[in-house]
Computed example of a mutant assay.
Amino acid sequence: MERLSEETRGTLLSPLIDAGWSVQPDRDAIEKTYKFADFADAFGWMTKAAIWAEKWDHHPEWFNVYGKVKVVLTTHDVDGLSTLDIKLARKMDGLAE
């Protein structure tokens, strides 16, 4: 796994930024807060996302309060963003629809 290159970074991140993700200012990571109707919906989404994260061996940093889930994605092995972060962000967005 490699850190995103400057050449691919804009192309891969742009659609995620349009979908509500943002780049953290203090580290090479992206974040998004998902809002759900209630705790059960939020936890159900987290369970589905966790299955994919485990399957891909790429685990998010996340924080849940009632119907909100804040997600931070970065690849610790490369100390920054990788294609795994892009892949998991897209999957999480798809699961939230």
Rank of each mutant, 00 (worst) to 15 (best):
T83Q: 15
K48C: 12
K87C: 08
P25C: 12
D26S: 12
S14E: 15
K55I: 08
L73H: 07
A29Y: 06
P60F: 03
D85A: 02
G44K: 09
Q24K: 13
A42C: 10
R9F: 09
K55Y: 14
A50Y: 05
Y66C: 08
I51C: 10
V71G: 01
F39I: 03
H59A: 00
R27W: 08
D77M: 07
K87P: 04
F63G: 00
V78P: 03
K70N: 13
G94Q: 15
D77I: 09
R9D: 05
V71C: 02
L16E: 03
G67H: 10
D93I: 08
L84A: 13
A53R: 00
L88R: 04
M1Y: 13
D93P: 11
A19Q: 15
R27E: 12
A37P: 11
G44P: 06
N64K: 01
F43D: 01
P15R: 09
D41H: 14
S82Y: 04
A49Q: 04
W56P: 00
T74S: 13
F63N: 03
E31K: 09
H58R: 02
I51K: 09
L81G: 06
K87S: 10
Y66D: 07
G80F: 06
L4Q: 07
A50P: 01
K55H: 14
V72E: 06
A89D: 02
T8H: 11
S22Y: 15
V65G: 05
T75G: 02
R27S: 12
K87L: 11
L88C: 06
F36I: 02
D38M: 10
E2L: 14
E6A: 15
L73F: 05
P60G: 06
D26Q: 11
I30F: 03
G67R: 07
D93C: 09
F63H: 06
L4Y: 10
P15G: 06
V69D: 01
T8R: 13
I30M: 04
K32G: 01
G10C: 11
N64I: 04
M1W: 13
A42T: 03
H76P: 04
G67P: 10
D28I: 03
H76R: 08
L95M: 09
R90M: 14
T33S: 09
A96D: 03
R27F: 07
H59I: 00
S5D: 08
H58S: 05
